[in-house]
Amino acid sequence: MIDTHATDLLEMPGDWQRALAVVAHPDDLEYGCAAAVADWTDAGKEVVYVLATRGEAGIDSLAPDVCGPLREREQRDSAAVVGVDRVEFLDHRDGVIEYGLGLRRDIAAAIRRHRPELVLTLNHRDTWGGGPGAPWNTPDHLAVGRATLDAAADAGNRWIFPELTEQGLEPWNGVRWVAVAASSTPTHAVDAGPGLDRAIRSLLCHRAYIEALTDQDPEEYVRSFLTAATGRASDRFGGRPAVTFELFAR
């Protein structure tokens, strides 16, 4: 949830060319910020997705060895809708990701490999905000969000994970910002209007997951969810539908 009574949201910086989005599961970006990604790729910017898991524990009726490949295909299809053609998976176990050196190293390696100026991740705090009774966040989101914030610095320090340099991944200290989507304390936003229809189609690519999640018609569910989500902070963004981010400068 977003505090709609705070100060106005600033426009996200636009003076960058490469972004790396790091999240825990297939569908995290589609629920979080695909409309912004569509806007950026339209402008000629490069965006790469890195997912810690293949979402193999996400559908109760499907065994992990069936679910993982299915959700990987859905993720690749959904990324293509918003102009992203590079999607990588780190193969941590869905549902039991642990914050620690291994996760930080894997994300730092991805940052060194792709050399982004902007790094994106998802809400890393205990709840989704909104005061008492706010929905509890998942351990996977907490671990990946925190590790991504830390790995943005790790990637630029040759003495942290020196084995990455030995593998040919030279330090990259060019990350200028880490942007956290779905934060309860956003500071910046992107106009969701131009990319909203593609964001809806992108989330609809996760049809197997959505059909397991709700009895509602998938298109009705997705359109309603994303329209409401991008409308919550519109009064802080000049009346425009907004994909919001909490921006940490480096």
Rank of each mutant, 00 (worst) to 15 (best):
A6P: 07
T7V: 12
L9D: 01
L9W: 01
G14H: 13
D15G: 05
D15W: 09
D15M: 07
V22D: 02
H25G: 01
P26S: 04
G32N: 06
G32P: 11
C33E: 04
C33T: 05
A38F: 00
D39E: 15
D39N: 13
W40P: 01
T41V: 10
D42H: 09
K45P: 09
E46T: 15
V47A: 05
V50C: 04
R54Y: 09
G55N: 05
G58C: 04
D60I: 13
S61M: 10
L62Y: 02
P64L: 03
V66P: 09
V66A: 14
C67R: 01
G68N: 04
G68C: 10
R71Q: 03
E72T: 11
E74A: 02
E74K: 01
Q75R: 04
D77E: 15
D77G: 12
A79N: 00
A80G: 08
V81L: 07
V87F: 04
H92G: 06
D94T: 07
G95L: 02
E98M: 07
E98C: 07
L101Q: 14
L101A: 15
I107F: 02
A110P: 03
R112E: 06
L118G: 06
T121W: 01
H124S: 14
D126A: 15
D126P: 03
G129P: 01
G130V: 09
G130W: 07
G130F: 05
G131L: 13
P132T: 12
G133T: 11
A134T: 11
N137K: 06
N137P: 13
P139Q: 15
H141C: 00
A143T: 11
V144G: 01
T148A: 10
A151G: 08
A151R: 02
A155W: 00
G156R: 08
N157M: 13
T165L: 15
E166N: 11
N173C: 12
G174D: 08
R176M: 13
V178A: 04
A179S: 11
V180N: 00
S184Q: 06
A189I: 12
A192G: 05
A192C: 05
D197N: 07
R198T: 06
I200P: 00
R201Q: 12
L203R: 03
H206K: 03
R207Y: 11
I210C: 04
I210V: 08
A212F: 09
T214C: 11
T214H: 02
E219C: 08
E220M: 13
Y221C: 06
Y221S: 09
F225M: 11
F225I: 07
L226I: 14
A228M: 15
A229T: 14
R232D: 08
A233S: 14
A242Q: 05
V243K: 01
R250M: 11
